[in-house]
Amino acid sequence: MSGTLNVFVVSLDTQSERRIDPHITVEQLKNKLELITGVPVANQAISIRNSLEDRTVVATLSDDSKPLGFYGLRDWHVLQVDDTNPSTSLTGQLTDVTQVDKFELSDTAYAAHDPDTVLAYKQRNKVGRFAPKDETSQPAVEVKIDLGSRCEVESTEPGLSKRGTVRFVGLTSFGTGEGIWVGVEYDEPMGKNDGSVQGKRYFSCRPNYGAFVRPEKVKVGDYPVEEIDLDEEM
């Protein structure tokens, strides 16, 4: 047998692919494996397994003076290194999480710990459970009111007709809850604004000619400008 073999070396804490000379003895192999696995030479019990998928034992390296080729070692075999006395070495301690103290951080401490945490990001950008409730409520109902339409707005005063022209339809930054508002430019100064509210402009009209109402209070149709008969008032 000549050349080197590609084998896997597996222990409790390690797994690696190695090139092994089949002419070296088991004793020489153990000296090399101590550096790889951390298992002391005196504690090593080495067996040859068929493959990583099939861990059937092919042979046990029981004689330190024998060369590896004596045991039929071939490419892609697994050299399984077991520690016969782990209490005298560190074997298994690297993977034993039961010996590690758990570090737990409360939600409050986590939020205050680092301004770049995911929690802090969500708070700053109002994402997920930090989103405003009106942004996560039911979607706005579609309103079919065309801009420029003539309309009549429902009034609480009997006999009062409030006619005008639709100048805006959409969401606003004022008001409680979510929903569509209709901006109307009245024919007469019956409104409350000039098309702007709280410093934000939605449309333009003369002062006190503008108003914002809910769509259900607006009737769109043929509503001409009412003419005032001055002769009747004289």
Rank of each mutant, 00 (worst) to 15 (best):
G3P: 10
T4V: 08
N6Q: 12
N6R: 06
F8C: 04
Q15E: 02
S16N: 10
S16H: 01
R19T: 01
I24Y: 00
V26S: 00
L29C: 05
K32M: 08
K32C: 07
L33V: 03
L33D: 07
E34H: 07
T37K: 07
G38D: 00
V39M: 05
P40E: 05
N43R: 05
A45C: 06
A45G: 04
S47G: 13
L52I: 14
L52V: 00
V58T: 10
A59P: 08
D63I: 15
D64P: 15
S65F: 12
F70E: 14
Y71D: 09
G72A: 08
R74F: 05
L79W: 05
V81E: 07
T84R: 15
S87P: 11
S89I: 11
L90N: 14
G92D: 06
L94W: 03
Q99M: 12
V100A: 14
L105M: 14
T108M: 12
A111G: 09
A111D: 09
A111R: 13
A111E: 13
D114Q: 07
T117C: 07
A120N: 15
K122M: 15
K122W: 08
N125G: 02
V127Q: 10
F130T: 11
P132H: 05
K133G: 09
D134L: 13
T136M: 14
P139I: 00
A140H: 08
S149C: 07
C151E: 03
C151N: 00
E154H: 10
P158R: 03
G159K: 10
L160V: 14
K162T: 14
K162G: 06
R163H: 13
T165W: 11
V169K: 01
G170E: 05
G170A: 01
L171N: 05
S173F: 03
S173T: 14
T176M: 13
T176R: 11
T176F: 09
G179M: 03
V184Q: 04
E185R: 08
Y186V: 10
D187Q: 09
E188L: 13
M190V: 07
K192E: 14
G195D: 04
Q198M: 08
F203G: 00
R206L: 07
P207L: 03
G210T: 05
V218W: 07
V220E: 00
V220H: 01
V220Y: 00
P224M: 00
E226N: 09
E227V: 09
L230Q: 10
M234H: 12
M234F: 15
